[in-house]
């Protein structure tokens, strides 16, 4: 597996899709900062800006991974890898690790960039300890994003199909996150009267779980500087990071490659 991993890492370094995604996220980060700095009447605190670009992180990573991993299938190089691999699982794990590495590099670069540049333009209200905790949660979010899209691409076995599925899912996750966020931010009382839009009981719990399971939901919580259930999020991320590659290994083992 180490051999394939080294080859994939070498490819990641030169990958155009990786560079473009990183560049796209940088541009997005700058745009968000300009919008926040010029569009508000009040001084925006830095905490509201640091993770703001992460709201589009899922879409950018869907594009990056489906193109990066999908190229192995469209250009046919996967056949060379299969011919030399000891086990198909090695191939799956290697692709997932490299995709996650790519996601992680982009996440760290964008977050650090926004935090450093943002200090010059926004009110620095960031508590270092909180930032560190949220940063760690963001790493989990980024790894889960990498896992989800690389697993989908591997199982699609075609670049075009993978792009369609990954982008579709990324936007689906984004819309689900907007919906669940809208429900979860409602308070029980509004202006002293019970809020009719407040949802309680099982439905609220379900929305919370969906919000925590969804990497876009996690990103929304980070960008709002308010993570409601950090332990639950961590637990979900661990399950997904272990479970998704295991399922992918099982299914990919029997997959016909054309």
């Amino acid at each position: 597996m180490i051999r394939i991993l080294r080859a994939d890492m070498a490819r990641l370094r030169k990958s155009t899709s990786f560079r473009l995604s990183l560049l796209g996220m940088l541009v997005l980060s700058i745009l968000f900062m300009i919008m926040q700095a010029t569009g508000m009447d009040y001084t925006v605190p830095l905490s509201r800006v640091i993770f703001l670009p992460m709201s589009m992180y899922g879409v950018a990573m869907a594009a990056f991974i489906s193109v990066f991993v999908g190229t192995d299938f469209s250009d046919g190089f996967i056949r060379n890898k299969l011919l030399t691999a000891d086990h198909r699982c090695n191939l799956v794990v290697s692709q997932i690790i490299v995709s996650c590495m790519g996601c992680l590099i982009i996440y760290i670069a964008i977050t650090v960039f926004t935090a450093v540049v943002g200090r010059f333009f926004f009110e620095d209200n960031v508590n270092q300890a909180v930032f560190f905790r949220y940063f760690i949660l963001g790493i989990g979010m980024s790894l889960v994003t990498g896992c989800i899209f690389s697993v989908i691409t591997m199982l699609c076995g075609s670049k075009t199909t993978a792009i369609l599925w990954c982008m579709g899912l990324a936007f689906g996750m984004l819309f689900l996150c907007l919906h669940t966020n809208e429900i979860l931010v409602q308070t029980a009382y509004k202006n002293g009267a019970p809020n009719p839009r407040y949802v309680s009981g099982f439905r609220r719990e379900l929305c919370g779980i969906l919000h925590d399971l969804n990497p876009c939901g996690q990103a929304a919580q980070l960008s709002g500087w308010e993570v409601w259930h950090p332990v639950r999020e961590l637990l979900f991320n661990c399950i997904l990071i272990i479970g998704l590659p295991a399922v992918c290994c099982m299914l990919f083992r029997r997959k016909d490659i054309y």
């Binding site: 051999r3 394939i4 080294r6 080859a7 070498a10 490819r11 030169k14 155009t16 190229t71 250009d75 046919g76 190089f77 996967i78 056949r79 060379n80 890898k81 011919l83 030399t84």
Partner: peptide, 25 residues
């Protein structure tokens, strides 16, 4: 083996493609 179409990365040079194969092997 060359199955159907040549298994090469189109956005790489000939040398880079061979380096990839060398790494895999």
């Amino acid at each position: 083996a060359v199955v159907e179409t040549p298994a090469i990365y189109l956005d790489m040079t000939a040398e880079e493609n061979l380096k990839q194969q060398y790494l895999i092997l």
